[in-house]
Amino acid sequence: AVCQVIGMYDYTAQNDDELAFNKGQIINVLNKEDPDWWKGEVNGQVGLFPSNYVKLTT
């Protein structure tokens, strides 16, 4: 993983390639090539999510 982030809001996947997560959930970021849509993993599920829905862990 590149880094870990925390969901600031609940996110519901809109497409099959997206990653759903809940507020407060830890997401392992796998790829930040696109500044707006990062690739991440939660509980074995991998997908894209909007980078503005998360904050970096300290």
Rank of each mutant, 00 (worst) to 15 (best):
A1D: 09
A1K: 07
V2H: 12
V2I: 14
V2W: 08
V2R: 14
V2C: 09
C3I: 11
Q4T: 11
Q4W: 08
Q4M: 06
Q4P: 02
Q4E: 05
V5G: 09
V5K: 04
V5D: 04
V5F: 03
V5Y: 09
I6T: 08
I6H: 02
I6G: 05
I6D: 00
I6L: 07
I6C: 08
I6S: 05
G7K: 03
G7Y: 00
G7I: 03
G7W: 03
M8F: 10
M8Y: 07
M8Q: 15
M8N: 06
M8H: 11
M8I: 15
M8G: 07
M8A: 15
Y9Q: 15
Y9P: 02
Y9G: 11
Y9H: 15
Y9T: 15
D10F: 00
D10N: 11
D10I: 01
D10H: 10
Y11S: 03
T12D: 11
T12G: 08
T12E: 13
T12L: 08
A13H: 02
A13W: 03
Q14G: 11
Q14L: 08
Q14A: 10
Q14I: 06
Q14M: 10
N15K: 14
N15R: 14
N15W: 05
N15S: 14
N15D: 11
D16M: 11
D16K: 11
D16P: 10
D16S: 09
D16G: 12
D16Q: 15
D16T: 11
D17R: 14
D17W: 12
D17K: 12
D17E: 13
D17V: 07
E18T: 01
E18H: 11
E18Q: 14
E18P: 01
E18C: 09
L19T: 05
L19R: 03
L19F: 04
L19A: 01
L19D: 03
L19C: 05
A20Y: 05
A20I: 03
A20F: 05
A20Q: 14
F21Y: 00
F21P: 00
F21S: 00
F21A: 01
F21I: 10
N22W: 07
N22K: 13
N22L: 10
N22I: 10
N22P: 13
N22S: 14
N22D: 15
N22A: 15
N22F: 08
K23L: 03
K23G: 04
K23I: 02
K23W: 02
K23M: 07
K23N: 07
G24N: 09
G24F: 04
G24C: 00
G24P: 02
I26H: 09
I26P: 06
I26T: 15
I27R: 02
I27D: 04
N28M: 09
N28L: 07
N28F: 10
V29G: 03
V29A: 03
V29E: 00
V29K: 04
L30I: 14
L30R: 04
L30Q: 10
N31G: 13
N31L: 05
N31P: 02
N31V: 09
N31A: 14
N31M: 10
N31D: 15
N31K: 09
K32G: 06
K32L: 08
E33D: 13
E33K: 10
E33C: 07
E33Q: 13
E33R: 08
E33T: 13
E33M: 08
D34L: 05
D34W: 01
D34C: 06
D34V: 04
P35T: 15
P35D: 11
D36V: 13
D36S: 12
D36I: 12
D36G: 10
D36P: 06
D36K: 14
D36C: 12
W37K: 03
W37C: 06
W37G: 04
W37S: 03
W37Q: 11
W38A: 06
W38F: 01
W38Y: 03
W38M: 04
G40T: 06
G40D: 04
E41S: 09
E41G: 02
E41W: 05
E41N: 01
V42C: 14
V42M: 12
V42G: 05
V42W: 02
V42R: 10
N43T: 02
N43C: 06
N43Y: 04
N43A: 10
N43L: 08
G44Y: 04
G44I: 02
G44T: 01
G44P: 02
G44S: 04
G44R: 02
Q45V: 14
Q45A: 14
Q45E: 12
Q45I: 12
V46P: 07
V46M: 08
V46D: 05
V46H: 06
V46F: 07
V46E: 08
V46L: 07
G47I: 02
G47K: 06
G47M: 00
G47D: 02
G47F: 00
G47Y: 01
L48R: 13
L48S: 10
L48W: 14
L48Y: 13
L48G: 06
F49K: 02
F49R: 01
P50T: 03
P50C: 05
P50V: 00
P50W: 04
P50I: 05
S51C: 07
S51Y: 00
S51T: 09
S51R: 13
S51F: 00
S51A: 13
S51D: 02
N52F: 03
N52S: 13
N52E: 11
N52T: 13
N52Y: 10
Y53D: 02
Y53N: 06
Y53G: 05
V54T: 13
V54Q: 01
V54S: 01
V54R: 04
V54W: 03
V54L: 01
K55R: 14
K55P: 02
K55Y: 08
K55L: 09
K55C: 12
K55V: 09
L56V: 14
L56W: 08
L56F: 12
L56P: 12
T57Y: 13
T57S: 11
T57F: 14
T57W: 11
T57N: 13
T58R: 14
T58E: 15
T58D: 14
T58W: 07
T58V: 12
T58G: 14
T58H: 09
